[in-house]
């Protein structure tokens, strides 16, 4: 069984983790075309190389990011999500009264 190193909990059996998909930049929903949006929702990077992936350490509910080579399955690095997501994200447009 593979080992994945959680930045919070250290090396653990992969069975303690849940895969959360590739790290993708979400297009602006207000301006993105339908096609761009569909590509974001449905496409994953499949070229051979290093991909960024979300992983969750299930017992501690801790999300982090892994750099993994999708052909050799080598995990190059894992790091906390706030290395990549450094600031608050907001969506423009006013709240409709409800």
């Amino acid at each position: 069984m593979k080992i994945l190193t959680c930045p919070l909990n250290g090396p653990r059996n992969i069975s303690e983790f849940v895969y959360g998909g590739q790290v993708k930049r979400m297009p602006d929903t207000a301006t993105a075309s339908d096609r761009e949006w569909a590509a974001y929702v449905f496409y994953e990077e499949t070229n051979i190389g290093v991909v960024l992936e979300w992983w969750l350490h299930s017992p501690s509910s801790y999300w982090f990011i892994a750099e993994r080579h999708n052909a050799t399955d080598e995990i190059i690095r894992t790091f906390p999500a706030d290395e990549l997501f450094t600031q608050r994200v907001d969506f423009s447009s006013p709240e409709a009264p409800l």
Partner: peptide, 14 residues
């Protein structure tokens, strides 16, 4: 649902 919420907020940082 809980996992998704945590994942979203890991990105939004609310």
């Amino acid at each position: 649902v809980y996992r998704d919420m945590l994942k979203w907020n890991a990105q939004w940082r609310l």
